[in-house]
Amino acid sequence: MTSLPWLAALPWLAAAWLFAIGVYGVVTSRHYVHLIGCLSVCQSSTYMLLLGVGFRRGAGPPIFYDHPPGTPAVDPVMQALVLTDIVVGAAVTALLLVIALQVHKRCGLVDPQRLRPLRGPK
């Protein structure tokens, strides 16, 4: 990179930062729904990392509708991985929200630091 050297590692550091604060949010959360939001921040760090790996300077998107095939394009495999990742993230978030709702219906509490493990029937 002719410009600043930290620009070469920017997406990896941004992804690590997002993951770190996501985990911090999960650890210090006092509301289950807030915890699930912080988990989605962790997931977005993986999107950034994957797309950053595939990016090529001066290249266009890997869609050859307007440009003939052979023009420089970024990596399409990474974008396919991130597409799958987004759908998986949405499904996991939905399931976690359902579980949070059921926990509240059963225990009346929604604070992860005050909940005790649920005991089965004796």
Binding site: A8, A9, W12, L13, G54, R57, P62, D75
Partner: peptide
């Protein structure tokens, strides 16, 4: 150390993507 060992942003070294594009 991992962040500095990864290929620099904008110059990927993977071969699968360009093969797919070609």
């Amino acid at each position: 150390s991992v962040a500095s060992a990864l290929p620099p942003f904008g110059a990927p070294e993977a071969a699968y993507g360009p093969a797919v594009n070609a």
